[in-house]
Amino acid sequence: MNSIVCVKQVPDPEAPPASFRIDSATNRMVPAAGVKPVLSPFDEYAIEAALRLKDAQGGKISILSLGKNLALDVVKKSLSMGADELYLLQDDAFEGGDSYSTAYALSLAIKKLGKFDLIFCGRQAADWDAGQVGSGIAELLGIPSITVASKVEAADGKARVERVLPDGREVVEVDLPALVTVSNELGEPRYPTLKGIMAAGKKPVTVWKASDLGADPAQLGRAGAKTNLLKLYAPVRETHCEIVEGETPEEAGAKMALRLRQAKLL
């Protein structure tokens, strides 16, 4: 079972909202000091899904990551967790793109990698929250896609994928090769072990540029984007919070009930 996992480096999405800044001149988010880059959390679940298949039946896991200023210790976490090889798509030509041009570049890299049974992506990246690239890669490669998975099993050229629904679950069987996007209901991704971290140092890391992929420049980065970002800004939230106090927490709780009754909310 050979898998490819696409991962993205993002500014820590769990950083305190108060630290969030935007540069309105460039329409970009500026990571505050102390906000570290991390693997987008759902992508770690995607790696975990691939590792569980590998644990069960062997095979190879290749990691693909497209981005600028990738911190090697961040993207290498995938290798420390147990993946086998890492490919970095780094080129100014990939910059300024949208879901379309990003999926295009990743799909070319996947074609170059050659044979695979499953591609895994996180259900959405924690920066732009679009949830398009996974399905987009599948569409460009002409393979089926199953989204928001909580469990993945594979045998005999087919995968059985459990999907999370708003009020339940469903199981879908799909012909391989296929692409699966993974949600947190899969269960916690493993932590890299010390042994894993040591082993990762010896695993191959390859950098590909646009020219290595034989990409059509008109479809890459800004030129290939189908959408245009007009404006990026912080929403104005103006609420005033009335703190209800008491001599004791119990008294404060009781007074809150009275206050809500007074406001006709109870």
Partner: peptide, 21 residues
């Protein structure tokens, strides 16, 4: 920052009193 009303305290103490009231 998103709330209109708030109590600062341990919910284990605040909530039962709120419920009783």
């Amino acid at each position: 920052k998103a709330a209109q009303y708030g109590v600062v305290g341990d919910y284990r103490k605040v909530l039962p009193a709120f419920l009783n009231k």
